[in-house]
Computed example of a mutant assay.
Amino acid sequence: MTSSNASLDLNSSRSGDIADAISVRSAVEHRLEQLVTDLPGVPPNLQQAVRHALLGESKRVRPVLLYLIAEPKPWEQGAVLDAGCAVEMVHTASLILDDLPCMDDAQLRRQRPTTHIAFGQSTAILAAIALLTKAFGIIAGLDGIAEAKRLRLSALLSDAVGWEGLVAGQEIDVNGRDSLIGVTEVEELNWLKTGVLFVAAAEMGAILSGMDDDRVEAVKRFARHFGVAFQTADDILDISASQGELGKDVQKDGSKATLVSLFGASKAQLSCQEHLARADQALVESGVNADPLRELMQRLFKMPKASLP
């Protein structure tokens, strides 16, 4: 097995204001807790399953990304935070489904048993549906956001989830991996499974901030490269990190085609570094305050040179 020291830092923390990634993550955690507490009329078992899946330990990268790109004024912070929570609900729903026995058959997620292990497959599927529908309800009701903008955000998130986004990526992952033979095909899958929701979160932040089209396009390029790098790093960790370190199952990819399995950890790390460099270039072009986003990337990605096979 190829060894690697690549890692995603799960536990960094420091104090800072609301423009700092750590403080945004803390605000997201607090708001998510509020959104799934004391829900009248929701069956207790379903509510517990939703909380189990949503509130487990997580980096919350997507809502943090949305918030930092939006750079909201004080009176906009609540709506932007809620938009980020909606994206996190979509992401969590995708994880519940990805972990099912008919998909990856995973046992551990976010430092706890997967939702179907803890609550059964039927309740897990219902929890995923509940999170998806709640996410769009949150977008529809964003306080102080014009209707036209809310409709645009909803359509954007719908496209990211649907048959040209996360759903397409999952179908290829389950039934089309054998046809992936090159870097382009694998990175397209990485885009669908991970990058597409990164881009949606970033573009939603750009829309909420009122950016012009050129800046929005730069933000999308940034997030696409960031997302593909993130998935590549995750593939490296699948062979190099322990279950305890990641809080989820490892070596689940088996013989699946990834950059690591096809070309080795060294080439995968090089690809990751190239995408991060392109992400940084697009970040500069976007005109967004780059410092907190660069800090986020530096904290998430630790990519020393891999040992050769």
Rank of each mutant, 00 (worst) to 15 (best):
A146T: 12
A146G: 11
E147F: 00
E147G: 00
E147I: 14
E147K: 09
A148G: 15
A148M: 12
K149S: 09
R150I: 06
R150G: 00
R150W: 02
L151T: 13
L151Q: 08
L151K: 12
R152L: 12
R152V: 10
R152H: 07
R152P: 10
L153S: 04
L153P: 11
L153R: 07
S154Q: 02
S154M: 05
A155H: 01
A155K: 05
A155I: 13
L156E: 00
L156D: 03
L157Q: 06
L157S: 05
S158R: 03
S158C: 14
S158Y: 01
S158P: 09
S158D: 04
D159N: 15
A160L: 11
A160W: 14
A160C: 09
A160H: 08
V161P: 01
V161C: 15
V161Q: 09
G162I: 12
G162Y: 10
G162E: 10
W163S: 05
W163C: 10
W163F: 11
W163T: 13
E164M: 11
E164Q: 05
E164W: 06
E164K: 07
G165Y: 00
G165V: 08
G165C: 07
G165M: 02
L166H: 00
L166P: 06
L166G: 00
L166I: 15
V167I: 10
V167E: 08
A168S: 06
A168L: 14
G169R: 01
G169L: 03
Q170K: 05
Q170C: 12
E171K: 07
E171Q: 07
E171L: 04
E171G: 05
E171F: 07
E171D: 04
E171P: 09
I172W: 00
I172P: 00
D173W: 08
D173R: 04
D173N: 02
N175A: 11
N175L: 14
N175G: 08
N175Y: 15
G176N: 10
G176H: 05
R177S: 07
R177D: 13
R177L: 09
R177M: 09
D178G: 12
D178Q: 14
D178C: 12
D178Y: 07
D178I: 15
S179E: 11
S179Q: 14
S179A: 15
S179T: 14
L180D: 01
L180S: 02
L180Y: 01
L180F: 02
I181T: 14
I181V: 10
I181Q: 11
I181S: 07
G182F: 00
G182R: 09
G182Y: 00
G182E: 06
V183T: 08
V183W: 01
V183G: 01
V183I: 13
T184M: 06
T184D: 12
T184L: 09
T184F: 03
T184Q: 07
T184Y: 00
E185I: 10
E185D: 11
E185R: 05
V186P: 10
V186Q: 05
V186Y: 01
E187P: 02
E187D: 13
E187L: 15
E187C: 15
E188F: 08
E188R: 15
E188I: 11
E188M: 11
E188L: 13
E188S: 14
L189R: 06
L189K: 07
L189C: 03
N190R: 02
N190E: 06
N190L: 09
N190K: 04
N190F: 04
N190H: 08
W191E: 05
W191G: 08
